[in-house]
Design a binder for these strands. Structure first.
Length: 567
RNA sequence: CGGGGUGUGGCGCAGUUGGUUAGCGCGCAGCGUUUGGGACGCUGAGGUCGGAGGUUCAAGUCCUCUCACCCCGACCA
């Protein structure tokens, strides 16, 4: 490809709208163009990268036993109402009406469509297992699209769905995908960390995410440097510090005038925060719930949402709390009825806590569970933090940020039961098909590659996903010897099947070198009167500072060997 | 949805208490001189100042409404 003909211009200045490295560089390199918030056009360079990523993914999916197919973007909303997931997605679903006022949506994912498809085509255990996938645009009306391609509203995703007859089969499919995903990231030159993830309200037992560590990542990862434990902060567990138990004492009221927060109460009564109980109020699908947790621990709302099996969860407003007859600031579950009480398991160790007395300006000392109150649900709903103990090896947990570049789920039978995807097993009994789903966002993977591989000059593409392999960079093209050598090397490189970006512009060396660095093509080949004096060309890798001189004679072959050996 | 911010040629920005024909840098086109890490000179093209309404003799500038985009949070398979 000749740069003079390439669609898309590089820019010297950083576009004001971008402040993430990948977003800035993608814009400066002329690879993407914004159409609306979270909606982008991909210019030829980005499109080439995307196709390379796509081919790597397709190859790995096929090797793992996947069959590619294509489902529609346009889906009847009715299908989503059947599973109730229209509510789970809520406003995230792009909906529209056709001319007959039938409601449709743009697919944010395809579990519903594929489950119907499979149910129509699978009757017997003999038809299973199955792995089906597609690579297609997805639409999600994100509350806040951000950082260019990292969180977009329209994005390309590979989504594979597995269908098995039993849990063992699901485990096998899941492990095949896990390995295929590892292969994909390694082939794309991206180190991705496997972390435990939350599977959401309808998810099944296991779920993992693949994370590329990056400052700009949206997700917090809690991990243990000592063992292999790593989890999304939404899911992460930690060992809660143990509180010494003493002999339980009788309840005792104390005056705490004007004291409402845990800090104030623990300060006034001179007890550590870990010896207090905190009351937090949420509205879960419209109903007030009472959450009790140890004073020094925070509530993890994702965990809470999961134990409540609710669709919408938010903090209750003070007015809502008061309206429910609760004394805000001095609340505890003692003597409270008619409200669902959820307790974190942190309250089961330790004794003689300080908690609200459900009277203004009053708290109790010596509150003990379960002597003084009962919880409707007792579970781990605590937020894990760096510095706490690892649940696996008791080492100290650390935290970092990551970009989620893949997510795999064991779905189980929720959708197949709802949508009637059953098979007849060997003994003639009808059973729901056991499902898994596995997604990778291609554009996000591309953006993660930028975040992971760049310097102040631009991107440094890993060779397998670089838009071109070689940047052919002749200097002083008006010099007939240079022009002739450049043209002939260009032809030879192309004849070797190499992907060459030929900078055939009459620009100064500085402009050409800077563009070469910005675009990040792995190998730069410079020809100039200076190199021609010694019948050579200069070879420089984008990732390295030094350069080599290679003889002009046979340079295409040498480069072919170099590229092939690095791929 | 709450908070903050920005909208002026393709990009980055300036534009004073309202006052002629809206500027600057980059980029773009032409010519010439140059050029191993973003050269220089000359000439030139390109703008309904996000949109609507209003105040005024006069609005990029003031007022009202509105739209879009960005950031933080909430939210998010």
């Amino acid at each position: 490809m000749r740069i003079s003909k390439l669609f898309g211009k590089t820019q010297r200045e950083i576009p004001a709208e971008a402040d993430t490295a990948s977003h800035q560089l993608l814009l400066r390199a002329g690879m993407i163009h914004q159409v609306a918030a979270g909606v982008y056009s991909y210019l030829p360079l980005a499109w080439r990268v995307l196709k390379k990523i796509e081919n790597i993914i397709r190859d790995e999916m096929d090797k793992a036993g996947g069959q590619e197919l294509m489902m529609p973007v346009l889906q009847p909303l009715e299908l989503w109402q059947e599973t109730g997931r229209d509510l789970a997605f809520g406003k995230g679903l792009f909906t529209l009406s056709d001319r007959k006022e039938r409601k449709l949506c743009l697919g944010p994912t395809h579990e519903e469509v594929i489950t119907k498809l499979v149910s129509a085509n699978v009757q017997s255990y003999r038809d299973l297992p199955l792995m089906l996938y597609q690579i297609q645009a997805k639409f999600r009306d994100e509350p806040r699209p951000r950082a260019g391609l990292i969180r977009a509203r329209e994005f390309t995703m590979k989504d594979l769905y597995s269908f098995d007859t039993d849990e063992d089969g699901l485990d096998q499919s899941y492990n095949k995908m896990l390995q295929a995903y590892r292969n994909i990231y390694s082939r794309c030159g991206l180190p991705a960390l496997l972390v435990d993830a939350d599977s959401g309200a309808i998810g099944g037992k296991d779920s993992h995410e693949f994370m590329v560590i990056a400052e700009s990542g949206e997700d917090e990862i809690i991990y243990c440097p000592g063992c292999q434990y790593a989890a999304n902060a939404d899911k992460a567990e930690s060992i809660k510090s143990k509180i010494d138990s003493e002999e339980t004492l009788p309840l005792e009221e104390v005056d705490t005038p004007g004291m409402a927060t845990i800090e104030e109460v623990s300060g006034l009564l001179k007890v550590p925060q870990s010896h207090t109980l905190k009351a937090v109020f949420y509205i879960a699908d419209g109903k007030l719930v009472f959450v009790v947790i140890r004073g020094d621990i925070e509530v993890n709302e994702v965990k809470l949402k999961n134990v409540l099996h609710c669709i919408e969860l938010r903090m209750a407003t003070e007015a809502e709390v008061i309206e429910a007859g609760i004394v805000a600031g001095s609340a505890s579950p003692i003597g409270i009825s008619g409200i669902k009480i959820i307790a974190d398991d942190s309250i089961t160790s330790g004794t003689n806590f300080v908690a609200g007395a459900n009277k203004p300006d009053t708290h109790f000392r010596n509150v003990n569970y379960p002597r003084d109150f009962k919880a409707d649900i007792m579970a781990d709903i605590a937020k894990a933090h760096a510095g706490e103990e690892c649940p696996r090896c008791s080492g100290k947990l650390s935290s970092t940020h990551g970009i989620e570049v893949g997510h795999i789920f064991k779905l189980g039978t929720f959708l197949s039961e709802k949508l009637g995807a059953f098979f007849i097993d060997q003994s003639g009994v009808s059973q729901p098909i056991i499902m898994g789903c596995y997604g990778i966002g291609l554009g996000r993977l591309l953006a993660a590659a930028f975040e992971q591989n760049h310097d102040d000059k631009g991107i440094i593409w890993p060779l397998p996903i670089a838009p071109y392999q070689i940047y052919l960079c002749p200097l002083y093209l008006e010099n007939p010897q240079v022009a002739a050598a450049a043209e002939s090397i260009y032809a030879e490189l192309e004849a070797q099947g190499l992907e060459v970006l030929f900078d055939d512009r009459n620009e100064s060396p500085g402009v050409k070198f800077n563009d070469a660095d910005l675009l990040g093509i792995p190998v730069r080949v410079t020809i100039s009167p200076r190199t021609l004096e010694t019948n050579s060309v200069e070879i420089k890798k984008r990732s390295e500072k030094e350069f080599d001189l290679l003889p002009l004679e046979g340079v295409a072959k040498r480069l072919k060997e170099l590229i092939t050996s690095s791929l």
